[in-house]
Write a protein that binds this DNA or RNA. Structure first.
Length: 211
DNA sequence: ATCCCGAGGG
DNA sequence: CCCTCTGGAT
């Protein structure tokens, strides 16, 4: 997700719920040209915000969320993005997944002043991470928090920030939800769902996309 | 468990 | 047409 600072990534991450990042990247340049920081977005006309973000879906909820979050940044966090998961999830439209997106970006991009709190970093579990974790046998659970715990038990802490980005890319290009390209997959020899899955997921009578 | 909601792919 | 997309709040 494109961003120039923590505020922009926070807003973009809220907008990315149930929406491709390509669409988020399409609307954020206009949004941030009009409202570049928390102070300006906090005072914005809500209907104008709705128009700007409409293509991302859930636009009424999301407009309310990013404006309320901007107000909270101004009134409770000095106009800055808070740097702990506990504080981040108090923001409107921000759950554990979105909070972990911020902490992961801070770790990967080496944000100034964030290193002290990165011990609380978790693993981003979105729709791709959830699906691939189940297919690859990292977890049996469908609960995002439980999946995160299972992944934390498998991967060393240094990989927690980068793992989701790699799974997401892999999930978009190869291990897609609907019709995974098992024939082109380098992980096929190690995949429990593997080719036997494609018989189930695919055409005849299968209740497709169970995993 | 349900609602929010538009856009793109198959 | 139906399913999926870097979910969160009620």
């Amino acid at each position: 997700m494109r961003h120039e600072n923590p505020f922009q990534l926070l807003i973009a991450a809220i907008l990315s719920a149930q929406c491709t990042d390509a669409i988020v990247n399409k609307v954020t340049p206009r949004l941030f040209a009009r409202f570049p920081d928390a102070a300006s977005l906090a005072k914005a006309d809500i209907s104008e915000v709705e128009m700007l973000i409409r293509p991302t879906g859930f636009f009424r909820n999301k407009a309310r969320a990013i404006q309320e979050t901007s107000r909270l940044l101004v009134t409770r966090f000095g106009g800055e993005v808070p740097r702990t998961l506990k504080e981040l999830v108090t923001l409107s439209g921000v759950g554990r997944k979105t909070a972990n997106v911020l902490l992961s970006a801070a770790a990967l991009e080496g944000w100034e002043g964030w290193d002290a709190v990165l011990g609380g970093l978790g693993i981003v579990v979105d729709t791709h991470v959830l699906r691939l974790s189940r297919r690859l046998g990292f977890t049996e659970s469908a609960d995002p928090e439980r999946v995160e715990q299972d992944l934390q038990g498998i991967f060393p802490g240094e990989e927690w920030a980068s793992l989701p980005l790699r799974l997401i890319y892999f999930g978009r290009e190869v291990c897609t939800a609907r019709r995974p390209r098992c024939a082109e997959c380098p992980l096929l020899p190690y995949c429990p769902a593997g080719l036997k899955g494609s018989a189930t997921w695919g055409s005849a009578g299968g209740q497709g996309g169970q995993i």
